[in-house]
Each structure stands twice: as structure tokens, then as C-alpha cells.
């Protein structure tokens, strides 16, 4: 499976993260998104006329939507990430998968504007981002009251992976995460999963490893 990837793209990171969590080995093809704008070049437009990344290629299958890629990886090797199959849970997974595109537009837009100087109405993007974070926070509070720690279930699903990157990187776009305690706990739970990988902007949870005993002068 070949992933056309940009290291700073949260959407690409979703796929890398899902693959890491499910033990899938990806063949990474780095794309010079910034500063080279390679995603707008002929080679990549031939694969994805929309000019966006990530692109996932597996044999004849070409996927250009990150949510579809998460579902594909899960269906192939780890179906439990799709949820238990009950009507409510299936719907909740779909609900948050769709919702994740709003995070991409708002928080992702604010981040690209602040970090890589892409055009956009920064104030509007931030306000929409805050509105989305509030929705997510409220959703997580209600899940918690049902005894469930994740967006669709009591265990993580593709819905969590679809929402997590743009949320946790919101500060990159000048949107503070300080006001969202439920999001903080959810994010920590995801970051504590076995085989979790980071992307730039998400620091290692150093508390997961014990304090090393260091002999001075031996380094």
C-alpha cells in the first residue's frame, strides 16, 4: 500500500497513525507540498484531480479521502476499529467521520494560514474551529456519561482517528485547547494507545516511560 504523504499534514498523519495502530506497513512516498506544491503537479493530479493529499494506492484502488482510507485499513486488517456493528454505534462512527471534514476546513484552515501562510479568513476559520471543538467536547461529555471514553464506543474507532489530529493541533492555528477538559482526557487516552505514533506538533507523552536513572559523566 502506497501513501502519498506530507509529514506536516494532519490528514496524512491520520493514515500513518491508523496504519501504525493496526500494524500495517505503508510504502511512504513523500510529497513536497510545501514549499514545492508538488501536489499540484501533473504526476499527482493524474492520481487525484482534486490536487489534495493524502492519496492511498493499493493495486487498482486509489483513495483520495482520508476517512475512506481509515475505513479501508480497518476493514482489511482490524475490523474492530469500525465499531461493533450495532445501529447506533455505526451511525455514530459515520457522524464523526463526516464531522471530521469540518475540523479539516476550520482548524486545518486556521493552521495552514498561521503556519504556512495560506490565504483564508482567519477570524472566521478560528470561530468555526471553536464551534467544532465545543461540539466535540459536548459529545465526549455525553459519551462519558454513558460510560464510554471514545467518540462512538467504549474503545477507539476510526471516528476517533479521523477527528484527533486536527483537534490536537488546533493550537498551531492559534486556537487554544485549554477550555476543553473532556478533549484533553480523550486526547491523552489516544496518545497512550499501544503503537501510537506522533507527528510534529504532538510531543511524546514522556510520562509513559519511567524516569531514567542517569549516571553522570557516562553519556
Amino acid at each position: 500500500m502506497k501513501l502519498y504523504d506530507y509529514i506536516l499534514s494532519p490528514s496524512c498523519y491520520k493514515v500513518r497513525l491508523m496504519a501504525a495502530l493496526t500494524g500495517v506497513k505503508l510504502d511512504i512516498r513523500p510529497v513536497d507540498f510545501h514549499p514545492g506544491a508538488e501536489h499540484r503537479g501533473q504526476e499527482l493530479l493524474a492520481l487525484n484531480p482534486a490536487g489534495s493529499i493524502p492519496i492511498l494506492e493499493d493495486g487498482d484502488l486509489i483513495l483520495t479521502e482520508s476517512s475512506a482510507m481509515l475505513v479501508y485499513l480497518a476493514a482489511k486488517v482490524a475490523p474492530s476499529w469500525l465499531g461493533s456493528g450495532g445501529a447506533e454505534e455505526t451511525a455514530r462512527v459515520q457522524q464523526w467521520l463526516s464531522f471530521s471534514s469540518r475540523l479539516t476546513a476550520s482548524l486545518g484552515g486556521a493552521r495552514l494560514h498561521e503556519m504556512l501562510l495560506r490565504p483564508g479568513d482567519f477570524g472566521a476559520l478560528q470561530s468555526q474551529g471553536i464551534a467544532s471543538l465545543r461540539e466535540l467536547e459536548a459529545g465526549l461529555v455525553e459519551q462519558g456519561l454513558h460510560g464510554m471514553g471514545f467518540l462512538a464506543s467504549d474503545r477507539p474507532t476510526v471516528a476517533d482517528i479521523a477527528c484527533f489530529p486536527y483537534v490536537v493541533l488546533a493550537p498551531d492555528g492559534g486556537v487554544s485547547l485549554d477550555p476543553y477538559p473532556a478533549i484533553r482526557l480523550w486526547s491523552r487516552a489516544l496518545r497512550s494507545l499501544e503503537n501510537f505514533i506522533e507527528m510534529p506538533g504532538i510531543h511524546r507523552l514522556h510520562e509513559l516511560k519511567p524516569e531514567p536513572h542517569i549516571e553522570p559523566g557516562k553519556v
Partner: peptide, 9 residues
């Protein structure tokens, strides 16, 4: 870019 973006936050 990875290195620098780790510093940015």
C-alpha cells in the same frame, strides 16, 4: 520541517 515544527509549539 519535522524538526522545526516540533520546536514551534
Amino acid at each position: 520541517q519535522t524538526i522545526f515544527l516540533q520546536d514551534r509549539s
